[in-house]
Design a binder for these strands. Structure first.
Lengths: 102, 102
DNA sequence: TATATATTTGACAAATAATGTCAAGACAAT
DNA sequence: ATTGTCTTGACATTATTTGTCAAATATATA
């Protein structure tokens, strides 16, 4: 299973970009990008969208990977992870059907 | 659909406890508990476990409600919520099967 | 080996978010 | 009006996230 960091690093290298070059495009310090690619630090949503743009990756897909990573990390340690995900699904449905459409 | 706050308030009132009494048992300010019961502030895991203990609620169940609340809140705004949950499920499986058993 | 370039690491600062404290306000019952 | 309960909001404290930087490490090549 490929991590977010691996996806980013693979794509960057495939495009022949240096870490500092991509970092410059993203307007962040190369040290941060290095840590993100090694999954030592988590990118935020804004950065994910920028990355998808620059690396020509599907925005929705990368975002889904990013959010699911966060969730998996949150609940992996719990032994009720399956139940949690089922409940979350229900709640999302509920929120969607009951929220005010803008 | 019952929220965490509602579950707590219902049970507290059913047990005939005043807000300040339960707050004292939990060793928190009544203002905080008031906000938690109205879902204005989120309890943390430690508090959830204390609450389950004192209110005689199932620990696993309350914890599952609490975590799924957090997740649903995180992803409800995304329009790829379903995909995110499916991915999270896979990742949890992966983490579980690949993590070192203590 | 020496030099240049790229990445990693860790210490630290700054910004942001979570949590705790408190007093005044609102509400209901008597 | 007084008492008791809960709510609200301003503020302080603490924790977490995010950003900055320079030194250390790694890699390649003359």
């Amino acid at each position: 299973m490929e991590t977010i960091g691996q996806i980013i690093r693979n794509k960057r290298e495939h495009l022949g970009l240096l870490l500092r070059q991509l970092a410059a495009s993203l307007d962040i310090d190369p040290a941060i990008l290095s840590k993100i690619e090694r999954n030592e630090r988590k990118p935020n949503k804004e950065l994910i969208l920028k990355l998808a743009e620059i690396l020509e990756l599907d925005k929705e897909e990368l975002l889904a990977q990013y959010i699911s990573d966060k969730i998996a990390y949150d609940i992996a340690e719990e032994d009720c992870a399956d139940r949690v995900l089922k409940l979350a699904e229900k709640k999302v449905q509920y929120i969607k059907t009951h929220s005010v459409k803008s």
